[in-house]
């Protein structure tokens, strides 16, 4: 039983990364119609960025948790302004290919500079140990990561549901053309939304840094799972992205614990099952007939 609770915590912590990153992916897709393949690379940059900041400037984890997402927000704005924007009017496939190419470029640049072996990173100060709750010994960092991602998801949820900006983002996510026809300059929100989505991937990367191997390739597996998360949750559904993120994290953790050789397969079995029963995903809206 205590092992089960530990796996659950581990699953929630991992699920938190997926939920945050998938939230970013969903918002970008919703408002811009862009399937951002570089999301995994941005997650990797979040983790690598934390390690480099620690190494070069002695910025601890807590500093990185603030600085790295801000840097990635700015990087995202740059990418949108210089590249993505010019292809928005074309078939969405073009931006998919663009961000795919961007991924290769970013990953190889990181490899060239920092090599292929893992970068060192330590558990943040104050969260090295384990805490005992009701006789259960739990990793304090995993506990923190799980709580922090849930809290951040809730904060983003409040931003989306309680503010006018959030209302515009939700409306554009549901139907961008109609929202324009109602007098809203959707284009004005495109750049900040892209930056925001990238920053969320960055937060996931920073959170992953202390307990995942930090390599240039860490994003390539991540993006595949992320796409599974988005399909399970329902493409274009913000709530679906978050819920499916945690669900996939749990499935992965239980899989690794009880059926290690099937851990990865399980996620895609889940995806196939969801698509069979609900083609639009758990929270997706079925196409109107």
């Amino acid at each position: 039983m205590s092992a089960f609770i530990q796996y659950t915590l581990q699953g929630l912590a991992t699920g938190g990364f997926y939920a945050l990153a998938a939230l970013g992916l969903a918002v970008i897709f919703g408002v811009m119609g862009v399937v951002n393949f570089s999301h995994g690379a941005m997650y990797m940059l979040g983790a690598v960025g934390s390690a480099v900041l620690l190494d070069v400037a002695d910025v601890p984890f807590w500093g990185a948790l603030v600085v790295v997402p801000v840097l990635l927000f700015l990087f995202g704005i740059l990418v949108e302004r210089l590249l993505v924007r010019w292809l928005l009017a074309l078939d969405p496939l073009y931006n998919f290919l663009l961000t795919f190419g961007l991924t290769l470029l970013i990953v190889d640049l990181v490899k060239r500079r920092y090599g292929v072996s893992g970068l060192p990173y330590e558990l943040p100060a104050g969260l090295e140990g384990r805490v005992t709750i009701g006789g259960l010994s739990l990793s304090s960092y995993q506990l923190f990561a799980a709580f922090f991602s849930v809290a951040l998801c809730i904060a983003v949820w409040l931003l989306l549901t309680k503010t006018r900006i959030g209302m515009i983002v939700r409306a554009s996510t549901e139907d961008a053309e109609r929202t324009r026809a109602l007098g809203i300059n959707v284009g004005r929100w495109v750049t900040p939304v892209f930056g925001f989505g990238i920053a969320l991937a960055g937060v996931a990367g920073v959170l992953a840094a202390p307990f995942r191997a930090i390599t240039a390739d860490m994003g390539s597996n991540f993006i595949i799972i992320l796409f599974a998360v988005v399909v399970i949750g329902g493409l274009g559904s913000i709530l679906g992205a978050v819920m499916a993120g945690f669900l996939v994290g749990l499935v992965e953790a239980y899989g690794q614990a009880y059926a290690p050789s099937y851990a990865q397969v399980l996620i895609f079995v889940l995806m196939a099952a969801v698509v069979l029963v609900r083609p639009a995903g758990l929270f997706g809206r079925e196409e109107a007939s």
Binding site: M167, E174, R178
Partner: peptide, 17 residues
Amino acid sequence: RGIYATLTVEENLSLPP
């Protein structure tokens, strides 16, 4: 009719400037 499922009735009314 262009009603948003993810917006409440009042938000649907308040969305256009």
